[in-house]
């Protein structure tokens, strides 16, 4: 947290409403279809604004219905009231945090993360359902329904491209499980192997970007040990039990001449004649060596 207000972070504000109907596909596909990225951003914001307009229209209608007959139950009035409270609170809190806190090294800031807007999606989906179901021929409803249909054609069309791409991959390569799969030659497989041999598995990670988090996750999955101590330029390693050391580095680590953690690990790779683990699905370059007591 700093004393200053980071107004520039608001430029990263995510057009979150569109996410509820798959507008994230726009960002992915339009540049791949040869269209400029700015068009993707404009499209995402246009979709989000249409969805906001739909929600405002439906809220006004719900209020009018209540005013006509205040005695009958009006679950929709509750729904739209909650909707505006959720939207207002979400936008307010995330904006405050983004304005007050420094962005991460990779530019991450709260208002730019779609996940944080997830509670609003449920209201957006229901609003889409309600607007599509309306049979009113009033001009405003016809315009909003038309705009909504255009948005849906775009997002669902691109979503279809995504799924077809998935299935084409399955057809070509078979269904290969990704992520923390049960396949062998994952980092956790090698760590587990070390533990089965009676060694303590310890991982050192160069914390430069997002990738080390996967390494920590893999270590956690097999109850291995992650080093979180201090780093010194001339640090040496010692152990009181037989240990297998895993060094997780970015794939372009040899080009890096400034990062302390990388420089230290480069020294260990040479000193201990560390071997690179063989599979690119480890998501990072991992070197391994055994360290014995008093070695």
């Amino acid at each position: 947290m700093t004393g200053q207000i980071n107004w520039q972070h608001l430029q990263r504000f995510y057009p979150f409403a569109g996410e509820a109907i798959g507008a994230n596909n726009v960002d992915y596909w339009l540049p791949r279809l040869g269209l400029p990225l700015i068009l993707a951003h404009i499209t995402q914001w246009a979709i989000t604004l249409v969805l906001f307009a739909v929600q405002v229209r439906l809220s006004v209608l719900a209020w009018q219905t209540y005013r006509k007959d205040p005695q009958s139950p009006h679950p929709e009035a509750f729904f739209w009231g909650s909707n505006f409270l959720v939207h207002g609170l979400t936008i307010a809190i995330l904006s405050y945090m983004s304005l007050r806190y420094v962005a991460e090294v990779n530019g991450w800031t709260q208002v730019g993360d779609p996940r944080y807007f997830a509670p609003t999606w449920v209201f957006t989906v229901i609003a889409v359902g309600m607007m599509l179901s309306r049979t009113s021929q009033a001009a405003v409803d016809r315009v909003l329904r038309g705009a909504l249909l255009v948005c849906l054609v775009v997002t669902l069309g691109l979503g279809t491209l995504n799924r077809l791409g998935n299935w084409r991959t399955y057809a070509r390569e078979g269904i290969a499980m990704g992520g923390l799969s049960k396949q062998e030659n994952t980092l956790r497989f090698f760590m587990k192997q070390a533990q089965d041999e009676g060694l303590v598995a310890v991982v050192f990670v160069a914390r430069l970007s997002d990738y080390p988090t996967y390494t920590f996750a893999e270590a956690g999955m097999v109850n291995a040990v992650a080093y979180r101590g201090e780093w010194q330029p001339d640090m040496t390693l010692a152990t009181s039990k037989p240990t297998r050391v895993f060094l997780a580095l970015p794939s372009d680590f040899e080009m890096n001449t400034t990062n302390l953690q990388i420089q230290v690990m480069k020294g260990w790779i040479a000193q201990y004649d560390a071997q690179a683990l063989p599979d690119e699905r480890l998501q990072t370059t991992v070197y391994v060596f055994d360290l014995l007591p008093n070695s």
Partner: peptide
């Protein structure tokens, strides 16, 4: 990933915690 990893210590009665090492002089 870390929420998952913490389950091992929880099962051993050590709470929701991960295994780490702070000491380069004895990383085990």
């Amino acid at each position: 990933g870390q929420q998952n990893g913490a389950v091992w210590n929880l099962l051993e009665g050590r709470g929701v915690a991960l295994n780490v090492s702070y000491d380069a002089n004895d990383i085990s």
